[in-house]
Design a protein around this nucleic acid. Sequence first.
DNA 1: TTGCGATCCCTTTTT
DNA 2: GGGATCGCAA
Length: 806
Amino acid sequence: MLQEEMPSHAIESEGPSELLKGLTEPQRQAVLATEGPLLVLAGAGSGKTRVITRRIAYLIHQGIAPWSILAVTFTNKAAAEMRERVHGILGHDPQSTRGLTVTTFHSLCARLLRRYAEAAGLKPEFSIYDSSDQAALAKKIIAELQLSTSNWPPRSVLSAISSAKNELLDADEYAAQAVDFYSRTVAKIYAGYQRALKLAGAVDFDDLLVLTAKMLKSNEQVRAECNERWRYLLIDEYQDTNHAQFVIASLIAGRNEEGRPPNICVVGDPDQAIYGWRGADISNILEFEKSYPGTKVITLGENFRSTAPILKAADTLIRNNIKRKHKDLFTTRAGGERVEVTLARDENHEAALVVDWMKSVKDERENSPSPVAWREMAIFYRTNSLSRVIEDALRGAAIPYTIARGTAFYEREEVKNAIAYLRVVANPSDGVSLARIVNTPTRGIGSTTFGKIEDAAAQQGRATLEVMRDSSVLTQVAGRGAAAVGKFVQMIDDWTGGGTFMGAQVPTGLSDLVSRIIRESGLEAMYRAQAKASGSDADLERLDNLDELVSSARQFEMEFDAMADPAAASEDGLARPSDQTPPLLAMLRAYLESIALVADADAVDPAQGAVTLMTLHAAKGLEFKAVAIIGLEEGQLPHSRARESQDQLEEERRLCFVGITRAMRRLLMTSSRYRTMRGIPERTIPSRFLEELPKDAVLISDQADMLGGLDDFIERGEGGSQGPRYEAEGEFAARDSKRASLAWSGGSRTPRNAPFPVGATVRHPQFGEGEVINITGGANARATIRFRGVGTKTLVLEYARLTRVK
DNA sequence: TTGCGATCCCTTTTT
DNA sequence: GGGATCGCAA
């Protein structure tokens, strides 16, 4: 849930006095200071979101055209909620916010780049590569440069490239300042990587910012159009913007034109800067006044969210940061429960304690005027890997939960495959996606054949799919595989109408296209065969996920408003007459873009009535009545990788601060004496942040000494895979046996077309007689056979000359 | 050509 | 504990 609940019906489109109702004096000033540069230093829980939404509503109320307002938020979810709330404040006339742009930096850039593709040196169908696509491409480049991927791990090279991009250094500029061997090599990879992206008609996340900044800088007309359109600029979470974002914001704001300073309002809190590792530059906010002389500065310090003890804990903790501009955090409300700090024996115990705590919080409020429901509770952790144990405990206790991992669905193998098909359809140059699907499901275009085609493409500097169409190259290179390649190309052409997206055979709707591709590509059949063979729930789920993707496309189709798509729309929100893009293609591009830019926090949906699990990073900007933060141990929070420097340590402390300040009423912080890392229980040290909390606002409870020492347990050598079980023993046991029986019945099911059943005795010319213990179906059906004296082997039925004996 | 299984390595946060 | 990688078998 986003900060604060404002009863939106309280304010209809009446006079400005209604819009200012209930605001404190500093909040009021922040709403009213519409002209010129404004810096709002908003402490945690100080009503920041309320100020931003009222400010936008106020601007519109003052007669400013909605389409001349641009608000930039951190996640799509925050943008959607903000739009909705502005709408709510202004009454429900859809015209009242027509053309208002509320979006994220990355979405804004993606749309500007699509709209002004030519000026940016791109094609409007460009693909947006996520980190796994990036890694695949980088790997290829590293191999091409005859470097070893063990000396040059793609991901760390990519992070160096990413840092360079955040500083707006292109490959040449990076090379020019590279002095040592490492950075010279990275420079070479960087150059190759960019060349490959260009050839694939693709950009990575950072390029969205870099190319937009470059375009705005160099293309006067584009810049002028943006300046013309957006007269009022508002940026949230400004403390987490990087240099590229700073440049984009400055260029869109325009500088001192006609002697007037730009109307740029930035809102943020230096104490909540948690993205330094990703290139966020805290000096953007600290030096905003220098960048914009005449800036009005407003500080919001009064906290309306948390109880006094929670606020005191946060304030006392953050005072330990030395590099900090102090800002008072205060509340006028008294009372409230103390912050609970609990020490657990190990992660299972910790999870059990958290579950107990949440149950008790829920019960104690059940009969009070405002009970705490599951959806008003959250559990935060520093690293994603900590979620597993908590999930198990919640499932065991039958508490509903959701994990804020917006990208999780799109990272599933089957979904990624389907999307890769869509990307190739939208952008035939997309080599990474092509490589992913060309032989998925298998269609006889193996790595040898495809490798030769790729080499030929690289040599000729052409897109791979283009080479696959070239019969003269193909026959030389592919030989036997040529027919399979031809069939593949024909399949793509059928979907796209030969690239025109016209004709009777081409589906008219996006969801029709998606479902047709899933069917005709053979993906559906492939996963159906897998599910049939294994009988496992996981494989059946893949089919459900593909259906889910079709549904999401249908959903998008219904909500997509071609008129409002900034890629096509002009200043006043009307479609550009010159745009000749077929509607299906335009929608497909927008759909793929929306998929590429989902954030983890976008998945936070309190309507589901479930406890929300997320990383501390994803928690930014949210609030919950009850919050548990787990894993307060040295090495975890602060993280071991962040202990090298004072700056990193302070960022970890801010991260902890962000977590604490999300809590409205109740806060639990846990630390575990032992934590299992890669299967080995390790002794931990409680986080220094716990010691930094004010003693009088905290209630410490050491649960780690109960039930005898864990040290004994470890020494007895029982601390292996299972670990001790606390509570909910019955549920765990019941679940395990259910899973076991499912696996058993699924595993021994005999596929319908198998020549003999599980349990049969067969003879193999080499291995002799054996018993069939499992059969998997599908295109390459295979049997697992236990041979006497030889052992268990899995053989492909088509090749293994098996005869049935019994 | 294909896919499984053993083995090795790593181990933060995300648009 | 999990993911990528390489070698083996047909």
